[in-house]
């Protein structure tokens, strides 16, 4: 869907569906490539989105992901209705994970995802209500002058 203010797209991520895990991020990467965004920015966006998507698949039931692209930035919002995160400060630490053996067998669960989102984003906001869900707000600027 195109609007005057840029491009907005909505995706649904289904929790527990490991076979499909990563499809939404792969799609978003394709969209950004078609538009012709700089490859470093695409890579950072794709990594942050993929980490967020994997977390939904592993920990939440379902989520809505929106991609919003303007001439100056890419915004990714992920709202899930999972169990939420008790202590965000702890969850943000490298190495903290509550992943199950099944998730580890899939190649995940090292406790690196949230810190990696922060590393790849220019701005990252996370809020969570236990029992209700988690919301991520990821911003990556297109004009990287003076940014990371």
């Amino acid at each position: 869907m195109s609007t005057e203010n840029g491009l907005s797209k909505r995706f649904e991520i289904t929790g527990g569906d490991f076979g499909k895990a990563g499809e939404v991020s792969t799609k978003i990467k394709e969209i950004l490539q078609e538009i012709g965004i700089d490859s470093t920015i695409i890579r950072r966006t794709a990594i942050a989105t993929y980490e967020a998507e994997m977390n939904v698949v592993m920990y939440a039931k379902k989520a809505e992901l929106t991609l919003h692209l303007t001439p100056t930035k890419i915004s990714i919002r992920v709202y899930d209705d999972g169990p939420g995160i008790e202590n965000i400060e702890v969850a943000m630490q490298e190495g903290f994970s509550t992943a199950t053996d099944e998730m580890r067998e899939m190649g995940f669960g090292a406790g690196l995802g949230l810190p990696n989102i922060k590393k790849n984003a220019d701005r990252f906001k996370i809020s969570s209500t236990p029992g209700k869900g988690t919301a991520l707000d990821i911003t990556i600027y297109l004009n990287q002058a003076g940014k990371k």
């Binding site: 895990a21 990563g22 991020s25």
Partner: peptide, 15 residues
């Protein structure tokens, strides 16, 4: 040594 779909999706995501 991980052969699931995520190994290829991950490879694609990180270029």
């Amino acid at each position: 040594g991980l052969t699931n779909a995520q190994s290829i999706r991950t490879a694609n995501i990180i270029d």
